[in-house]
Amino acid sequence: MMAPGGRLAKYALWQFRDFATEKGISLLIIGLLLGFVQLLPFRLPGSPELTTERITRIIGTLANTILLIWVFITVNGIISNDRKLGYYRFLFAKPVRPIQYYGQLWLVYLLGLLTALALVSGLFVVFVGRFNVWNLALYATLLYISLGGIGFFVSAITKHELPVLAGIWLGSSVLRAMYGNDTGWKNRALDLLPPVHIMDGVAVSLMTTGTADLGRVVWIVGYGLLFVGLGLVVLHRRPLGG
């Protein structure tokens, strides 16, 4: 007989491989397609010379769209797929705790997303010129923690997280647009919604200056991690077959 306990840390390599084959390729295709369609006009003959400042602005706008789609794709099905398809049956008959397994998976997916970002950014640098990839990676990490954290929680409670997550994100944006300037309880209630409005400001600041308001960053990170924690609580309390 073997000693109790599985080897979950070692399994991270398999999780990363799954990310690469099941999601990574899609991310690269989407990133390259959207990227080159947007960037091509700037490389046509007769286009003005691109300054680093201009490149940063263009990439910042582009990153907003690409990274949002990437995070949606990355967290989609992170927990619910195993439930839907029944894969959990063999996985968790092994000496493994689901909260550790999925907590690790969430981190591995972040690593996968950053790897995809590094590849696409490298190609963009070759195509349009240098920009600060680290700032972009920092923004991607913040977006993943924020939206990916909510996605993790949603995936723990429902099998249809993509429409739910899109609804939350879109709903938050719409409600902020409608009631953002109100005073009173409506405005305060908006603070409970995902910090989509802060994300844009932080993105611009990070991309152009490499810095961002610490309070806002803490709010974004805290909000996302709170939902990761809630997702883990759901995993702990709700049996996988339920």
Binding site: G6, T21, L85, G86, Y87, F90, A93, P95, R97
Partner: peptide, 18 residues
């Protein structure tokens, strides 16, 4: 199960087809 594991064969063999 989390401590020791179980040798389990389910009626539905659900292993990622890829």
């Amino acid at each position: 199960v989390e401590r020791n594991g179980i040798g389990y064969l389910s009626e539905l063999i659900a292993i990622n087809p890829k």
